[in-house]
Design a protein around this nucleic acid. Structure first.
Length: 296
RNA sequence: GGCACGGUGGCGAAGUGGUAACGCAUCGGUCUGCAAAACCGCUACUCACGGGUUCGAUUCCCGUCCGUGCCU
């Protein structure tokens, strides 16, 4: 029997209805929500990320929203560190921590407590490596850590650079460790692809009507570069391109719609490989509640 | 009605007398500090239709249909 503290995880692709469900469950099981969304951590990214509003929270405390400035880079390790603290706090208050979000890597980092090498980004090294071809980068990591080279994606320069960064600093790339700190129940929300596509469509147009474009313009006016917003992806990326006249309104809308859909598919692909996830239709609340009761 | 050009996978777009580049989407997948990111793989037994020439046509010829532009 596990004596680890219990946490609940609500995950799934974008536009599936995670936030609403999480609030309902928090009310029912006396929980607090810890958002696991790599973009909702940024202040000012509201409409585009579908950040929950105060009324929608219905008084349920939400953590890890608006904890970073969008011009700075916030990464998994930042999130993991903060999330672990928040979970401890919630547990101390004898409430149920509910992690809710669609960023698989973040969720995994606390569910499995995966380790990340303690090597900080080395900008000078990165800039240097950026000039090399993936071929060259691969040869470099092969020399530094042949074991890591065996499994790394040799076409992915971003990964190659990080691996080289780690290996040059500590000599090799350490294996990932996973030593869970909590006992977690992961509930995955899903719907047929067609449904997801539909929901993405209507949600996008709702966002456009509620001022998505204005939000991006405002962020830009306040000093956030289009370049950075393009990095942030999806809504911020394509609306930025539109505002810079690189896309027509129509092109922006259709491109964005398919990109969001593709993102949803990537999320599903990520989650699919974790057999511990209990997949359910978001409207099947009875079953979800039942699962949680059994778990608690 | 005449003249011209064109009809290639879901979309865009190459191309050749010997049997179909590429981009996007679709579908599948990867994942050791940027994860809404980065990266990988698959996908036209077929080139509007009918006939002809040819050993062989998507590619040449004729006709039909459709589209676009120009002209009367």
């Amino acid at each position: 029997m596990s004596t680890l503290p219990k946490i609940l995880v609500i995950l799934g692709p974008t536009a599936i209805g995670k936030s609403d469900l999480a609030v309902e469950l928090a009310l029912r099981f006396d929980g607090e929500i810890i958002s696991a969304d790599s973009r909702q951590v940024y202040r000012g990214l509201d409409i585009g990320t579908g950040k929950i509003t105060d009324e929608e929270m219905k008084g349920v405390p939400h953590h890890l929203l608006d904890v970073a400035d969008p011009s700075t880079r916030y990464a998994v390790t930042d999130w993991k560190e903060q999330a672990l603290k928040k979970i401890e706090n919630v547990l101390e208050r004898e409430k149920l921590p509910i992690i809710c979000g669609g960023t698989g890597l973040y969720i995994q980092s606390v569910v499995d407590n995966t380790s990340f090498p303690e090597v900080k980004p080395n900008e000078t090294l990165r800039n240097d490596l950026k000039l090399k071809t993936t071929e060259e980068l691969f040869q470099k990591i092969e020399k530094l850590d042949p074991k890591r080279a065996k499994t790394i994606d040799r076409n992915n320069s971003r990964r190659l650079i990080r691996a080289i960064e780690i290996a040059t600093e500590i000599g090799y790339v350490p294996d990932v460790k996973a030593e869970p700190l909590f006992s977690s129940l992961q509930i995955g929300l899903t719907l047929p692809r067609e449904k997801i596509k539909e929901r993405i469509h209507t949600r996008l147009y709702r966002r456009l009507e509620s001022g998505l474009i204005e939000e991006v313009q405002k962020l830009h006016d306040s000093g956030l570069s289009f370049e950075r917003m393009i990095e942030l992806g999806l809504e911020y990326k394509y609306v930025s391109l539109f505002l810079q006249k690189e896309l027509t309104r129509r092109e922006m809308e259709t491109k964005l719609e398919t990109e969001i859909y593709r993102y949803a598919k990537r999320q599903e692909t990520w989650f699919k490989r974790d057999p511990r996830i209990h997949w359910l239709n978001p409207s099947n609340q009875e079953k979800i509640v039942e699962l949680i009761e059994d778990f608690l």
